[in-house]
Structures are given as C-alpha cells and as structure tokens.
Amino acid sequence: MKMTASGGPWRKSSFSAQTDNCVEFRRIEGGVEVRNSKRPDEASVTYTDSEWRAFIAGVKAGEFDV
C-alpha cells in the first residue's frame, strides 16, 4: 500500500450514493488511488493505469459476479 500526497477529487460509485459503506477512487499521476470511505485517513491502495484498466475490463466481463 502506498499513500499518495495529491490527486483529483475522490469519487464513489453511484450504486453507493445512499450509504457511506463503499470504496472511493481518484485519478493520480500514472494511475488510480482507492480508499475505504469509512476510514479515509487510513492507507489507500494505488494501481497503475494498466492494472486499473484490467480491473474495469474484468468487471465489465462479469469476472467478479457472484
């Protein structure tokens, strides 16, 4: 895990709009930073652009459906 000093505004899924129990993400130089919305002051996880694109492609392909 890596803390990042600055980035764009934090965003969360529109599916999570009614609750504080979600993850948030923001663009940073060279990738995307993800954090727990319930613990915004704790460590975040940083993904490279290629890792993030692979994750989004997997979501769209249904790889994470339960």
Rank of each mutant, 00 (worst) to 15 (best):
R35I: 02
A57E: 01
G8T: 12
I56E: 13
R35V: 02
V45Y: 02
A43C: 12
Q18P: 08
K12N: 05
W10V: 02
F25M: 02
R27D: 13
P40Y: 04
R27M: 10
K2I: 00
P9T: 08
S14W: 08
K38F: 06
Q18W: 05
R27G: 05
K60R: 06
R27K: 03
P40N: 07
S13F: 02
E42L: 06
Q18E: 12
R53D: 15
E24K: 00
N36H: 11
V66E: 13
S6T: 14
M1F: 07
V45Q: 05
R35H: 05
K12P: 12
E51K: 13
R39C: 08
A54F: 08
T46N: 07
M3K: 11
K2N: 02
I28R: 04
S6D: 13
V66S: 11
V23C: 07
K38I: 10
Y47R: 06
C22Y: 11
V23E: 01
E24I: 01
V23A: 03
V45M: 08
S16W: 09
S16A: 13
N21T: 14
A54T: 11
Q18S: 15
T19F: 06
V23P: 10
P9A: 11
K2M: 04
E63P: 03
Q18L: 06
K38M: 15
K60I: 02
F15R: 15
A43N: 12
E63I: 00
D20N: 10
D49Q: 03
M1W: 11
A17L: 09
R35E: 01
P9H: 05
A54R: 09
A5E: 15
S37Y: 13
S6I: 09
G31N: 08
